[in-house]
Design a protein around this nucleic acid. Structure first.
Lengths: 192, 192
DNA sequence: AATAACTTGAACATCTATGTTCAGGTTCTT
DNA sequence: AAGAACCTGAACATAGATGTTCAAGTTATT
């Protein structure tokens, strides 16, 4: 067991940690109640090894969630959201969908295992981008100002979530989801 | 134990069944993982009594969900949704929020304990109303037709759900939620 | 008041998943 | 090559929930 370690981990340990996080992401997406044993097996690793790296099931899920959100955030942060906020919204939605859409299932699994506060923390980074865009759109005068900004932000994630559900149900093609969500949000953010 | 019964149940049995469903609704709203023991205690009833009426935890949750949805549906079915579809949407949203908004928590609890198919079945009845309204609004030419009708329907529930979350987080006043949701949906359903 | 329906707490039987320990085997690293 | 870091399966301890059984007490119903 690696136990508490300050310096660098050994190469095989790092490899295993990645495998475990990969497996957790996949298993939890397929079944939100996947057990630690399932995940360890999918990672090709002993259960004890897993517990050596992640103290508890909740820690594991939190780590998997953080990693995917960080990955996505890195990509989203690099986006150029200047210009017309409406175009920026389309870009942001499309990229958010590409990088996060398939991982809504992981988020749902995390919602069952983690306290709500921890969940919000994971949302925080991408939420910042959305809020900034909304604020700018309102300043420029193209997004509506008669509703709380926080509400518009909530609608953003809610709509992506809805699209993920529809795709999961086979009612919507994943490739069409991005533009569809963007179109809906654009309408919701501007006054009729 | 009442066991399999064809005729009428005794008065105290009926009373207890209602108490149990009330307690289940309340407990599950407060904690989606409330145990059968918790619910029985809250109902002022022995655990054995509960199992006498509901074979399993899942059956109990399904019954509680069905009852609340039926209640709400009865009310919604009685609504006059004629006239301008935009006004009808406002009315429908407001009433749906009043009767269902506080019960999203129960729905979430059911989502953990019941198969997805069973969940959809519960949605079906109110969904029909929404779909009819959307169809009529499109026929009349006030709602957009460039998106799948099913998607617009999904957005309806998704947005109500989002509002419930915001209220639950204390970010939104329950009384303001109805108009807010209606306003958002109206924008989402009409072309800019 | 008699009977059948209903309720009750306590105890029991499972079951499932988590998390830990151990003794011995691999694989990095220097 | 030597030692440390790491991995492993098996076994164990625990815990919490579900669902069932029982024997005795209540309550509604006719």
């Amino acid at each position: 067991m690696p136990a508490s370690h300050t310096g660098e981990r050994r190469a095989d340990a790092r490899r295993n940690i990645e495998s475990i996080l990969d497996a957790a992401t996949a298993c939890l997406a397929a079944d939100a109640d996947a057990s630690v044993a399932d995940i360890a097996k999918a990672a090709g690793v002993g259960r004890v090894t897993l517990y050596g790296h992640f103290p508890s099931r909740a820690d594991l899920i939190a780590a998997a969630l953080d990693r995917t959100v960080d990955h996505a955030s890195e990509l989203l942060d690099s986006l150029d959201l200047g210009g017309d906020p409406r175009d920026a919204l389309r870009v942001l939605v499309q990229e958010a969908w590409s990088s996060l859409g398939g991982l809504v299932a992981l988020h749902d699994a995390a919602a069952r295992a983690l306290p709500a506060e921890r969940l919000r923390r994971a949302h925080a980074r991408p939420m910042r981008l959305v809020e900034e865009l909304i604020a700018r759109g309102r300043d420029v005068g193209v997004f509506r100002t008669d509703q709380p900004a926080g509400w518009l932000g909530a609608v953003f994630f809610s709509t992506i979530h809805a699209a993920a559900d529809e795709v999961h149900r086979g009612q919507l093609d994943s490739a069409q989801a991005g533009p569809l969500v963007a179109s809906t949000l654009l309408a919701a953010y501007t006054l009729p």
